[in-house]
């Protein structure tokens, strides 16, 4: 069988005495969205940061196309960076306020010493290239998140790790960004590790869902199954707690 795009095996991360991520195993294929859901503090962001190597895992393996990332040094990791990118929850805090849209999207290209097509990237995420000269505070929340996505796409990654990418957005903007992510996945065959506490959002994007509780995955399966016929008590409680469901 071919290697999946991302394979995470028995990943652990401790802060002091406590384990934020406590033995997590899963895989994500090309063109596939695996959603990680769970309550605040269960370790989702820590997991995302370990996968994207913004945090160093305590132990375990993170393989991208079979290549081990977890133990690579920063220097050895650099040439692989373009292949996986992180998109954050709050676009206003993840974008440098003093840079223009153009500079923000160009930054990853500059770091890797490639030219890239910034106006093309902006149109691809549905941003008027005329906004290239603006600063983040001159944009709406939805526009800022599009800039974050354009920046993540600049180096043509295979995998996006999306940590609560639509949580801070209004309902109508949330729907626009979800649709954008679905379209980009289809066009580019991207794999998504999609982190969210919102089961309704997750149901619109996920092929498979993994439920995280206290640093561990308690249930993983196809989206319809996990949401429709949850097998774990904790998942049942999560689904039951969704307002209006």
């Amino acid at each position: 069988m071919a290697e999946p795009l991302l394979r995470v095996t028995d990943l652990r991360k401790s802060y002091g005495e406590s384990w934020a991520v406590d033995g997590v195993t899963f895989a994500v294929d090309r063109g596939e969205t695996l959603a990680i859901v769970g309550e605040s503090g269960c370790g989702k962001s820590t997991l995302a940061r370990c996968v994207a190597r913004l945090a160093q895992p305590t132990s375990g393996s993170v393989r991208l196309d079979g290549l081990e990332l977890a133990t690579l040094s920063r220097r050895r990791l650099r040439p692989l960076r373009p292949r996986f990118q992180l998109v954050f929850q709050d676009p206003s805090t993840s974008l440098n306020p003093r840079w223009t849209v153009e500079e923000i999207v160009r930054e990853p290209l500059r770091l890797q010493g490639v030219r890239g097509d910034v106006p093309g990237l902006l149109s691809e995420v549905g941003l008027d290239p005329g906004l290239a000269g603006r600063h983040p505070h001159q944009l709406s929340g939805g526009q800022r998140q599009r800039v974050g996505i354009a920046r993540a796409l600049a180096l043509s990654p295979d995998l996006l790790v999306l940590d609560e990418p639509v949580t801070a957005l209004d309902v109508s903007v949330q729907a626009q960004i979800i649709n954008l992510l679905l379209r980009l996945q289809e066009e580019r065959g991207l794999g998504y590790l999609f982190i969210s506490h919102d089961l309704a959002v997750v149901s619109a994007v996920a092929h498979r869902i993994a439920v995280m509780h206290a640093g561990r995955l308690v249930e993983t399966g196809p989206a319809e199954q996990v949401l429709g016929r949850p097998s774990h008590d904790y998942t049942r409680a999560l689904v039951a707690a969704v307002p209006g469901a």
């Binding site: 089961l199 149901s203 619109a204 994007v205 429709g228």
Partner: peptide, 19 residues
């Protein structure tokens, strides 16, 4: 209509164009 709902399944949401 543009709110995602559990049970609606994976796929694009009906959006309001523009802002």
């Amino acid at each position: 209509r543009s709110r995602p709902r559990i049970g609606a399944g994976r796929g694009p949401l009906p959006v309001i164009p523009g802002h």
